[in-house]
Nucleic acid binder design. Structure first.
Ligand SMILES: [Mn+2]
Ligand SMILES: [Mn+2]
Ligand SMILES: [Mn+2]
Ligand SMILES: [Mn+2]
Lengths: 219, 219
DNA sequence: CAATTTTGTTAGATAGATCTAACAAATTAC
DNA sequence: GTAATTTGTTAGATCTATCTAACAAAATTG
């Protein structure tokens, strides 16, 4: 069984992996907020457990078993976030820190029961897919709002960043998943967008914000 | 902040304390399933944090702050057990192991929300009192069934032991908290009791079982 | 009360997760 | 293509939580 620390490394490896599934030691060190020597020794340890493939001076890759282990922790994390929002009345900006702890609980029945009570949700409160019990993830390819054109109508479907600060910003603008946005104009100088939605007269969103909003195009 | 390990020691100290609040190193070692030297060093460490009073060759006692810390962990444990039973449909025999992990989560809002959703319950699913947010415990002095007399009518109110095996035994006899029992007879040889309750024709309970059942006398 | 048993302590070791300092390999810049 | 920078490794230390072996104090027993 993976320790809590090992579980957090597996999750980071999963999230940082590029198209080739590779992760650099330095990236992982930054993500985990530890020194590179610490990562170096942890990676050797994860290798001994069969969760990663690693050779000196080469990026790390998760093995199939490492990927599955990571996906199952992410499943627990996302089910927890959804449960906190749907069944316990938390805001989407409050749940990540709690889920970061709850994801390490070893009690399959606990998470199965959450899943069942919510009717087997496919997405977490931030629009990220919940891996199934086999660790398979249904990847959905949304577009970032910043790639859209003037006049398009889109539905806010997910986020590329779910930090508390960003979620609180979205709350302050009454932006939540499922909202229908219409792109009124795009400022060519800084790529900021003017959009309207649900009664709101019009709202200007910076490029930084638009890049973090994932949408489904309606028209 | 106490580590998970320290939290488990605090809880054990709280539960093992005698009338004078004292706990021997050997008891604690047995309870925690570790060696005496391990306890010895942990006790010195808890002392440095101000949670216990300790002198060489003397039993350990929790300080006021140690008692409060312990009670607050027990609060989280019992709220969790109650939530699992009342809001998630678990049986009272399934919840202890899960609560043993959930009790270490640092997220006051999470437990406050459980508490609120359940309407601030005073007892856990095994009849044990839930400490309040200040760590105060309302001790209730029940009687063990084994101390009762023939002819008495009692209500099953709590348990002195909540092991899965015992809870499954009680399930198999349809015994749950709140059940009204009538004592038909007591076998003088082995102190076993014959009782009736709720439709059941009559059930014989060994002394071992009767000592673990806490009741409120009706008549 | 002396002998035995139980309880508790000290010393020294180990494993996991982390650090810093020193160095080496790989990459980037000029 | 050498020099500088970045990235990664090794060595050695620390801290927590644990162990066993050896010993010492306290309690029990005859
Ligand atoms: Mn999250
Ligand atoms: Mn985590
Ligand atoms: Mn319990
Ligand atoms: Mn615990």
């Amino acid at each position: 069984m993976a320790s809590q620390t090992e579980e957090n490394y597996l999750k980071s490896l999963f999230n940082l992996a590029n198209e080739a599934g590779e992760v650099n030691i330095s990236e992982l060190a930054q993500q985990m907020q530890v020194s590179m020597p610490t990562v170096n020794s942890m990676v050797k340890n994860l290798q001994k457990s069969g969760w990663v493939i690693y050779e000196k001076y080469r990026p790390v890759t998760l093995t199939t078993s490492g990927q599955k282990a990571a996906a199952l922790i992410i499943r627990k994390h996302r089910l927890t976030e959804m449960f906190l929002v749907n069944k316990m009345g938390f805001g989407w900006e409050e749940v990540h820190e709690i889920a970061e702890q709850v994801e390490h609980i070893h009690a399959p029945k606990f998470f199965d029961r959450m899943d069942e009570m919510m009717g087997h949700p496919l997405l977490d409160p931030h629009g990220s897919p919940i891996p199934d019990k086999q660790g398979r993830i249904q990847e959905i390819n949304f577009l970032t709002l910043s790639k859209c054109k003037v006049g398009q109508q889109v539905i806010l479907a997910a986020l590329t960043n779910s930090s508390t600060e960003f979620l609180e910003f979205l709350n302050s603008r009454n932006l939540s998943l499922g909202k229908e946005l219409k792109i009124i104009s795009i400022e060519t100088y800084d790529q900021s967008m003017v959009v309207t939605y649900d009664g709101h007269p019009s709202e200007t969103l910076s490029e930084k914000v638009c890049e973090r909003l994932l949408v489904r195009v309606l028209a």
